[in-house]
Simulated assay, not measured.
Amino acid sequence: MTPPDSPALTTVFVYGTLMPGERNEHVARQGGDFQARPATLSGYRLIDLRPEAYPGVVSGTDTDMVTGYALTYAPAEWPTVLSFLDALEGLHETPPLYRRAAVTVQVAGQDEPAWVYLYARADRLAQAGAQTVASGDWRTVSDRALPATGDR
């Protein structure tokens, strides 16, 4: 969480269907305009979930890295953005599909704080169809644009 005396954290690291050019970019845009910058998240692993056809990020090793974008919104738009993103990511489902966590991402060689949605259903990861994306880049998954259950 952001300390109360700090400016609001209005950047979210996206690594899958919310990235520019991907099938849920429109959800990221529902909250308002944002600045999209290429970014990486170290120490985490990208998982491709099938048949769901969407990714998840989980804790990894020091050598693991996920490629995506840092989306930065205007502070006034942030509450609206969160409502759309939290709904898409199943944050309030029981049990939650994803959980939002504060992390440090690398943007143009600099560390920056950001939120990220981490996959929260450990039981699903032990089942068939959950595979690590070795490249850490969702755009390397050839059939990623297939319609997903729940359109995540």
Rank of each mutant, 00 (worst) to 15 (best):
R23Q: 14
Q35L: 14
A8V: 15
R144Q: 12
P7H: 12
T10K: 05
E93Q: 08
D86W: 01
E52L: 10
R23C: 14
G32I: 00
A148T: 13
F84G: 04
D111T: 08
L49V: 05
T17K: 08
T17L: 09
T104W: 02
H92R: 02
G31C: 06
Q35I: 14
A28W: 02
E77K: 07
L82K: 12
H92W: 02
A122L: 05
S6H: 15
I47R: 07
L125I: 01
W138V: 03
A70D: 12
R121Q: 13
T17H: 07
D5H: 11
Q106W: 04
L118C: 09
L118T: 01
T104C: 04
G60I: 07
T10D: 03
W138T: 10
A102Y: 00
L91R: 06
Y98C: 01
G68N: 12
D62A: 15
L71D: 13
I47V: 13
A28V: 06
R121L: 13
R124L: 12
A114M: 10
L46C: 07
S83Q: 11
L118G: 01
A134N: 08
P7C: 10
A53K: 14
V103S: 05
P4T: 12
T140P: 07
Q127L: 14
Q131E: 15
F13D: 09
E112N: 09
L85F: 05
G150W: 03
G21A: 12
T80I: 08
A114D: 03
L9H: 02
A39V: 04
V27T: 12
L82A: 02
F34K: 00
V12A: 12
A53Y: 14
D143L: 02
L146V: 14
V81K: 04
R121W: 00
L9Q: 15
G56V: 00
A148V: 03
Y98V: 04
L71Q: 14
W78M: 01
A114C: 06
W78H: 06
L85I: 07
F84L: 02
A120L: 01
A134T: 09
Q110C: 07
A74P: 02
M1Y: 10
I47D: 01
P4G: 03
A76C: 01
R37D: 13
A76V: 11
V57W: 07
R29K: 15
V12P: 04
V81Y: 05
P20K: 14
R100G: 04
L18G: 13
V27M: 06
W138P: 00
T104K: 08
Y69I: 03
R45S: 11
Q110N: 11
Q35W: 04
D48L: 04
L46A: 06
P3R: 07
S83T: 10
D123F: 08
S135H: 03
M65E: 15
G68P: 07
P51N: 13
